[in-house]
Write a protein that binds this DNA or RNA. Structure first.
Lengths: 233, 233, 233, 233
DNA sequence: AATGAATGAGAATTCATTCAT
DNA sequence: TATGAATGAATTCTCATTCAT
């Protein structure tokens, strides 16, 4: 039994203990990698934090590199699932469009700013050269799917005449850029907590700009926000 | 006897060699850190690549950590200087506004995609937790200055009635987000070269969205781009 | 229901499987020890190669050290039995003496060059210090018995006047030295296959020298070989 | 400066200390390898026994494997030099032939039974599979040279009519086999000291058999030894 | 100022062995 | 009886750093 396996549904009690250990290892590993980066995370730390002996990690995951890959893809997949759930609340009509977008954006940003997501993002950057394939794998199982789904939602709104969008994929990318990209800077790459509603402000401003750009021209945007007062930098 | 950089006739040869070594060390260090990350960059590699003995690095820079800080801030400062130069070409009138913005954005993106900048960005992410102060230092001496300057330029255009911007700092951030943020993904965090004009497309689309959102409402945008046909993703 | 080869009605099936496992373990162990030496042979390898679980080895043989001892003495005993069989063809008269000795020597050398014998010899050398008693045990159950038997045969020939031998044990040792000792060198200690008839040449030359030295002085050696032309080294 | 180097004649004082350390490492390594075999010799032991820190071994010799190779070839080369010296006393005339051969053989056997030689022999056997090339290298720089030299001496005696030898290389091999090969068995592969004159007896008996076989036929062997009384096995 | 040499501390990984089932 | 899982101990090797020159 090795890495890729999924638990057999009705596990024997022994199997149960085994899976507990495995889970403990993976969770500890994410924490330790997040705190220290790949190179400076030692298996000693991970073993201690997981409450298992070092060789147990090797029994389960094979090697440090493999453990890292597993932790990263697993975590990214979980994050992605949450992000996709967010899309279910995507507005489908013009009525409440702004509010709907803000809501979706806020919850999306929440996913992105989750401690684990931030950790994965930092680690991907950090190890982009050591694990070039990993970035692609994580994107494929994560952000790319999300972009596609978001593009589909935007296209529907455009088809219905509520938005004016030529290239939905690009618009999706721009949407995310507008509502999120200022935040890593403000949180020092997810290292420092954001102030209350700091994310909210960025989200509202981002959605505002997005709607200014893409709201269907004749479009009665019911609640065109008045120019907000400049927040402190 | 230490002499400044102004026409010192005599006495420099020894001092000259010393500075050469220091420069060689710093340059080698950037390359090695960029390739391997902080933890896996060994002073042996750096010393070899710089053509000096290991203790010489200590003589000049004190410690690995200090060398890293020095390399990062120095490089970031240099990058920033280039970015600020770009702003000098910023358009000041409505005529040629789109072209001017595209030009500025293109050159800015060029700076951001420079090998050294990408390396610094990756390293900042990677070591955000180990060197939390470093991120702030680099931002302060780099991107923050640039944002402020860009915000100033935008504000001038707004004052002149060419753009409609309530919060120039936020608009500056959004400008950068729109014209740049898609690129790291496409280049695998600066690890893979971009296709020809891949950056150009992103830049044009970003400026287009920016102008849709912020062009002064009555504003005769001389060349309002028609909705582009959707490019292949 | 599995039945043994003697008509034991009841009780054997489980026992049968057990013995099979034991045999599999011992055989796998010999191969693995031979390939890797004692220290670098892991019980994992042995278990895998034997097709059993690691603890099963402990159930059967107790410990790595004990397994090693058992494998070595067992194998040596088997080798010895074969060598003793060879002696049954030992010539008993002057007629065909040379041919008979060559024949015996050839078959003896064959035993010595058997893969398993070579392995045991290498392992004995390798572990002479770690298992000093093992060497004696293996000698006692192996080569020493053979020397004694060979000495007996030579003594009989001497008594019958066909050979002139003062100390039969020493002569036996010298016989073996003459017909065998060049071979380990040529086969890199049993690690490389010998060329065709490489062993044959050494054997013939050895027997020739032996007969020159020990043929009964008046002795009509029926086929005193003329000095052979020097073979290529 | 690396492995193969020989000391520069007039070493600076610093260089002197360096060479001392290197020598200490190599000598300690031979002892530890001899006691424990390759696999069970740890660099910790070697470092401790040499009185240096572990990394110093790596600085000097690069890796455990390389250290082993170096120790083996170095030691073998030294042994060989001694063996070749022995040949200088080789008898050149019929007069005193037996005594001369016995003398040479005794001193040769002394070389072979030297603690270091025995250790190298054991290690070669032990690691024949792990380091197949090493055996050849050691033979080439050691025993093979000696065999050739001995063959030359025997050929001279044959040319002069004092011996009757068809194939001198083979005769050289047989000479060594006769005077030496019984000894490893008696000393448990060099692991146990030989009794007083145990080697002497084997040597005399070996030379006796050799001369019986190869003394020039008409040859007045001045002191044809009477058949010795059989010694106790 | 620059360097060759040396080292203490710590890294990943493997192994013989033992439980609990 | 046979086994999957777990582990303490030990291995090779690397690294940042310091001396003596």
């Amino acid at each position: 039994m090795r890495v890729g396996e999924t638990a057999n549904a009705a596990g024997a009690p022994a199997e149960r203990g085994r899976l507990d250990k495995r889970r403990a290892i993976v969770e500890a590993a994410l924490r330790v990698f997040a705190r220290n980066g790949y190179a400076e995370a030692s298996l000693d730390m991970i073993a201690t934090e997981a409450g298992v002996a070092k060789p147990t990690i090797y029994n389960h995951l094979g090697s440090k590199e493999n453990l890292f890959r597993y932790v990263m893809t697993t975590t990214a997949t979980r994050s992605n699932a949450k992000a996709l759930e967010v899309l279910e609340g995507f507005p489908k009509e013009a009525g409440g469009l702004r509010g709907g977008l803000e809501d979706v954006a806020a919850r999306l940003v929440d996913c992105y700013c989750d401690e684990r997501s931030e950790a994965v993002r930092r680690l991907l950057y950090a190890e982009a050269l050591r694990f070039p394939d990993l970035y692609d794998a994580v994107r494929a199982s994560g952000a790319d799917q999300f972009i596609e789904a978001l593009a589909g939602r935007l296209a529907r709104l455009a088809n219905a005449g509520h938005l004016s969008i030529a290239d939905p994929v690009r618009a999706a990318n721009q949407f995310i850029a507008l509502v999120y990209e200022e935040l890593p800077v403000r949180s020092t790459l997810g290292t420092r907590p954001l102030g209350p509603d700091e994310a909210g402000e960025v989200v509202r401003a981002g959605v505002d700009t997005f709607l200014r750009a893409f709201a269907a021209s004749g479009g009665g945007d019911e609640s065109a926000q008045p120019p907000a007062p400049a927040p402190a930098p």
